[in-house]
């Protein structure tokens, strides 16, 4: 049974790493409107990460706050799922990652908001409204790209293909999220149907993020995210 610390750190790391990934789009998105939308989603996630990691630090009781957990841990200590650390790729790949993740996160936050642990459920209740919008935004784009031009469709298919290997990890029974799978499958199938896309074929799952076994991408992400605190430990401004 996972402890509250394990639970909080996983949720916090998922949100932190995906928030950092989305922030990489700032100034690079195809349109100003998309730039703002992706930044908003990223900031929502970093806000959630702050709450979850603060809780994790309190549970741990070793005096680490959210910043210490975010900026002074190494790759092996991160507990995020592999999906969120995958590179942005093109816009369709970013949307595919968001679509798979936000639909899962919305179901999870809904469950957490109703859970008995009051500290966790308070964060979940706040997050669920934000995440519902993320899921809606990403789903809308899946439909438009999938049901758009030949090129947008090809990119959306490729984006989903590249991310699909990381889906099973979200429902790992060890994390207690296996029960969300049927609802998630139904939501994903609905949107893909509206986008006239096929649900990707099952493939061999890649897992390990929850145990600290990450892809090389996470190290590069942390290098950038943690640079300031590593170069100037304890700096504030």
């Amino acid at each position: 049974m996972a402890s509250l610390f394990d639970h909080a750190i996983r949720l916090g790391d998922d949100a932190l790493i995906l928030g950092q990934r989305l922030s990489e789009w700032a100034g690079h998105a195809p349109m100003l409107e998309i730039d703002l939308a992706l930044s908003n989603i990223g900031l929502d996630l970093i806000g959630q990460a702050t709450h979850f990691l603060k809780l994790a630090g309190e549970e741990e009781g070793k005096g680490r706050d959210a910043d210490a957990l975010a900026f002074r841990r190494d790759v092996l200590d991160f507990r995020n799922c592999l999906l969120v650390e995958q590179p942005n790729g093109d816009f369709a790949q970013t949307i595919a990652r968001q679509f798979l993740f936000s639909n899962w996160q919305e179901l999870l936050m809904t469950e957490i908001a109703a859970a008995p642990a009051p500290a966790l459920s308070a964060i979940g209740a706040k997050a669920v409204k934000e995440v519902a919008y993320h899921a809606r935004y990403a789903s809308e784009w899946v439909v438009r790209l999938g049901d758009g031009t030949e090129e947008s469709r090809a990119r959306m298919v490729a984006g989903l293909d590249s991310m699909w290997r990381f889906v099973d990890e979200l429902f790992d029974p060890a994390d207690g999220a296996a029960s969300l799978r049927p609802a998630w499958d139904a939501r994903i199938a609905d949107t893909l149907h509206a986008a006239s896309l096929d649900v990707p074929k099952p493939r061999r799952a890649v897992t390990g993020g929850r145990r600290g076994h990450h892809s090389e991408h996470l190290g590069h992400l942390l290098t950038e995210m943690q640079f300031l605190q590593r170069a100037y430990p304890g700096v504030t401004w």
């Binding site: 409107e33 703002l36 939308a37």
Partner: peptide, 9 residues
């Protein structure tokens, strides 16, 4: 999508 862009902007 215009509604979403307006919401975000």
């Amino acid at each position: 999508m215009a509604l979403e862009a307006a919401r975000d902007t």
